[in-house]
Amino acid sequence: ANIPLSYEFKEDGVTTQPETIKGTYLPNFKNIFDLYLKDSTTAPSQLSSKTGNDANSEFALGEAAFYQNGTWAWADLQKAGMKPDQVGMLPIYIGAKGEENQGLATASSENCLCVNAKASEADQKASKDFLNWVVTSDEGIKALSEDMGFTTPFKTDKVKSDNPLVEEAVEDSKSGKQQVAGNFTMMPSEEWQNQLGQAMLAYAQGTGSWDDVRKAFVDNWKTEYDNAHAN
C-alpha cells in the first residue's frame, strides 16, 4: 500500500499526514495485487493459512521466482542454502507514469530504537551508551553490517556488508533513480493497516469485493485520522 500512497502524495505535494486521501492509484494497486494472486504458489482461498516462513522456503527452493521482502531476508535465505548470485531485487511496478525512473522502496521508516523514559537514569544512560557503541565501535559496526546483514547508516564506503541485497540497495541508491520513500509514519494508525489487510484478504479469498478494499483504504483513513486526533 505504500507504493500507491507514495505516487498520490508525490502528485498532490503531500509532505505531512493528510486528513483524507483520494486513492488515486488504487486501480494500479489492484492490478499488482491481482498479479500476485494470479501467479501465486498458493491458491487465493488458502492464503490465510500461509506464513512468511512458507514464502521464504518456497523462494529458497526455487518454487517461486519472486517474493516481496527486504534486505533483512538474506539471513534466512542464506540459512536455506541460497548463494549471493542467486538473489536480486527490483522495484514494485504498478503502471504509474514515470515509474521507469523508480528505484527500490526504502524501508520501514516507522521502526525506531527507543529508550524507556520510565527506566532509571542509570539504565537510560546505559542504553544510550550501548546504542552509541553499536554504531561507533568496530565490533558493533561489524555486528550490524556483517553478522546481522543489516542496512547500515554509515556514510563511509569502508563498511561493507556480506548481504548481497544490502549491496544491491546501495547501488540502487547511487543509480540516480527515484527511490520510493516509506510513508508508514503518515498512515493514521496500525488499525488502518490491519483493516486494509483484512479487506485485501477477503477480496483474495472471494468473500469480499475490491470496493471493500477501497473503503478500507480511503474511507477508513479519515475514520482513523479522526480517532487519532480526537480531543
Rank of each mutant, 00 (worst) to 15 (best):
Q68H: 13
L37M: 12
G52R: 10
D219A: 11
V87I: 11
K50E: 13
N231A: 10
T151Q: 03
F130P: 07
T24E: 06
T20E: 12
S108C: 12
S173R: 05
G149D: 09
D34R: 06
A199S: 08
T42D: 04
G140C: 01
K222Y: 00
A143R: 06
F9Q: 13
T41R: 13
D172T: 00
L77A: 00
K177A: 00
M200G: 01
S145T: 02
L5G: 03
S209D: 09
Q102A: 00
N116P: 15
P91Y: 00
L131Q: 14
V87Y: 10
P44W: 02
N227G: 01
A64G: 03
E63V: 03
D157V: 14
K174S: 04
L5T: 02
F33K: 01
D54R: 06
S40I: 15
S189A: 07
K79M: 08
Q195P: 05
V218F: 04
L104W: 00
G197P: 14
Y25E: 00
N116S: 13
K160V: 11
K215N: 04
V218M: 04
A169Y: 05
N132K: 15
E99I: 02
A169H: 02
G52F: 13
G103L: 00
K174M: 03
K97Y: 05
E190Y: 15
L113Q: 05
V170G: 06
N31P: 06
F29D: 12
V135Y: 12
Q17P: 11
A126F: 00
K118Y: 09
G208R: 04
T185C: 04
K142Q: 13
E58T: 11
K22D: 09
D211R: 08
L61E: 04
Q198Y: 02
N56C: 04
A228F: 06
N220R: 14
W74K: 10
V218I: 05
K38R: 12
L144W: 08
P27I: 11
A117R: 15
Q195N: 15
F66L: 11
S48T: 12
K83S: 14
S6N: 15
N56P: 03
N69G: 13
K174D: 02
Q124W: 08
T71I: 12
V159K: 05
V115S: 07
V14H: 08
I141Y: 01
K177H: 04
T106V: 13
E146C: 02
S120L: 03
K160P: 07
S6L: 14
A230N: 14
A228P: 07
W72H: 03
N28D: 05
G70I: 03
N116L: 07
P84S: 04
Q124K: 12
A230T: 13
Q178F: 10
E191C: 09
S6I: 10
A60T: 05
D157A: 12
K158D: 12
K118C: 07
S48H: 11
K79I: 00
S109A: 11
A75F: 03
S145W: 01
T15G: 03
T15H: 09
M89L: 12
K158T: 15
A181F: 11
W210K: 09
Q17W: 01
K30I: 01
K79Q: 10
I92F: 10
G52I: 06
N53F: 12
K22W: 00
G182A: 14
K155F: 02
E191Y: 10
P153E: 01
A107C: 13
F33L: 05
K118V: 05
K125G: 06
A1F: 13
